[in-house]
Design a protein around this nucleic acid. Structure first.
Lengths: 106, 106
DNA sequence: ATTATTTGATACCATATGGTATCATGTCAA
DNA sequence: TTGACATGATACCATATGGTATCAAATAAT
């Protein structure tokens, strides 16, 4: 719960975890299914899934002896919120540039 | 140049670096100025700036013996591009949910 | 010219991270 | 019940990471 922003950004910092996120976007998958898609051990994939879960980016549902890993779009909210301030900066930059050009042309 | 997405995500994965980005959003700063804002050595701050530079998130301009660190909004583009696919997923989820509700109510 | 200031670079350290191997546990099927 | 299968958990390893301390180099100030 604490530092959700940090956990989410950390979860996205690894290329394998970003790949997992992309795969889960197309369909829910078990650990074994995900492991088939990567050149690494099931234990390694499990670790990545734990980090993604800590980041709030996936939800794990126990179904019998399997664990269905599902994407949790809400988990991306802290990341997008943080980045939103940057959009403002970007816009301000464009405004300043526009102003400067207008002053020169006056 | 290669793996710009990875370098950008990695740069954003550290809380100190995200703080630096926020500070540079309000004004360009030298390494010494940034160091005053944190409880760590100038060398540590310099390392973070190198990572941010590798991620394409800042530009460094030499001015005399000082180095002006400036935010580079364009560097955020790979991150936003990668996240954009997620927006689609989110929308699709909403569409599916909407469809399911409509089917039930029919 | 000399000194102070800002930075670059390197060596070094503790811990985090990504990975494997291994064994224990729970669940499905015969 | 007895295996087979999917997972959990732990110990362990190599490397990456975030930090310090230290020294060299370039520029500013006196």
């Amino acid at each position: 719960m604490p530092d959700q922003i940090q956990n989410a950004f950390r979860a996205l910092a690894d290329p394998t975890r970003r790949d997992i996120v992309q795969m889960l976007a197309s369909q829910d998958m078990t650990i074994a299914q995900l492991t088939d898609c990567f050149d690494m051990t099931r234990a390694a994939v499990k670790k990545h899934l734990t980090v993604l879960s800590d980041g709030g980016l996936i939800l794990v549902e126990a179904r019998g002896r399997e664990r269905i890993n599902r994407l949790e779009p809400k988990g991306m909210a802290p990341v997008l919120d943080w980045l939103s301030f940057f959009d403002q900066f970007w816009d301000e930059r464009l405004r300043n540039l526009k102003e400067a050009i207008e002053r020169k042309e006056t």
